[in-house]
Design a protein around this nucleic acid. Structure first.
Lengths: 179, 179
DNA sequence: TCAAATGGTGCACAATTTGTCCAGTATCAG
DNA sequence: CTGATACTGGACAAATTGTGCACCATTTGA
């Protein structure tokens, strides 16, 4: 039986039932999150299971897209982008979101963008090298066709950096098969 | 007042000198981002440099915290958390941010939190399993001592998923040493 | 109740990769 | 000129990976 990763589609309705993770899965993810450079063999040792098991679990997690990738996580700050801001865009609704999204995607400093409830709004996270530089970035955003208005807040500090681990530890699981 | 933000240390004087990256660095990061499972040896082949060079570059990037880690990237959606929301918190200023931040950090569904300009405000990203579940999460947030009011927007779609690569490609670099 | 399917264990083997060494060379700064 | 730094190319042992196999336990369904 060959592992055919593509055979398990993320949008496959079948997966709606398999969207929970095992206790072993959770431990594996936590372990990898703590020490990402660990190999499969070392993981199996730490978790006290067979190597093949870890390999299979990992393959499955990746196939199901519970794990979507393995970094590298690049720090914008380390690249000199010290300013982070959240910008709400009011856009012209008639044209739809796509043209605006496309325009935003072309701006490197736009790290992510979401359509949100309310009006025809978008929320995006941007970074800039300085406050002055932020103005340049905002100008670029305003220049995107379809953008009517922007309103930005600057992030001063990040008391809770992005994380998913608590979620993993908290997820309702299938009965632990690993008993 | 010391947060665990040491992962990004913009004030570290060391970084002031090392905040730019090489052309080779950029190519390496891009390569790793595209195919994160690649080993050092394979990278060296693809980049056309010696293995030791790649190893040294990687070590340096990690040491400088340009690369802060290597996943795994876990998808909340795959875990059943289909709803993402951005919640702005108005907090009681007298007590400072920490008590609130600590409270937020204890809620698994709070994926990140930032202090932002304006009043005594926090912006956080939360996930929930359903809209109804979001109410529960919001309730938990409101229960955090020091939180006066919340205002949430739900993310409907994510036309630009989080990314840093365009930034890497765009960073002003030192003259390419590798020439 | 039996048989198939599924998932885990242990083992084994070849191929690859890693972790380190090293010597030689080129470039840059003082 | 000299030292410091960075890259190359090669070498080696040790470790890891990819893969296949036989076997056992549990679950499922006929």
């Amino acid at each position: 039986m060959v592992h055919n990763l593509s055979s398990i589609s993320p949008s496959n309705p079948e997966n709606l039932y398999t969207m929970t993770i095992d206790d072993l899965d959770a431990r594996l993810i936590a372990l990898l999150a703590a020490e990402p450079r660990l190999g499969v063999l070392e993981c199996s040792r730490r978790l006290g299971v067979a190597r093949g098991t870890v390999q299979a679990r990992l393959d499955r997690l990746v196939a199901r897209e519970v794990i979507t990738g393995f970094g590298p996580d690049v720090s914008p700050v380390a690249l000199g982008y010290d300013v982070t801001a959240f910008i709400t865009l009011e856009i012209r609704q008639v044209a739809g979101h796509e043209p605006v999204s496309d325009g935003l995607a072309r701006i490197p400093e736009v790290l992510e963008a979401h359509t949100i409830t309310g009006g025809g709004d978008l929320l995006c996270r941007v970074v800039a090298r300085t406050n002055a530089d932020l103005q340049r970035v905002i100008d670029r955003i305003v220049d995107v066709k379809g953008v009517l208005r922007t309103s930005s807040v600057i992030a001063l500090d990040t008391p809770v950096p992005y994380r998913v681990l608590p979620l993993v530890a908290d997820v309702p699981r299938h009965g632990s098969r690993s008993t």
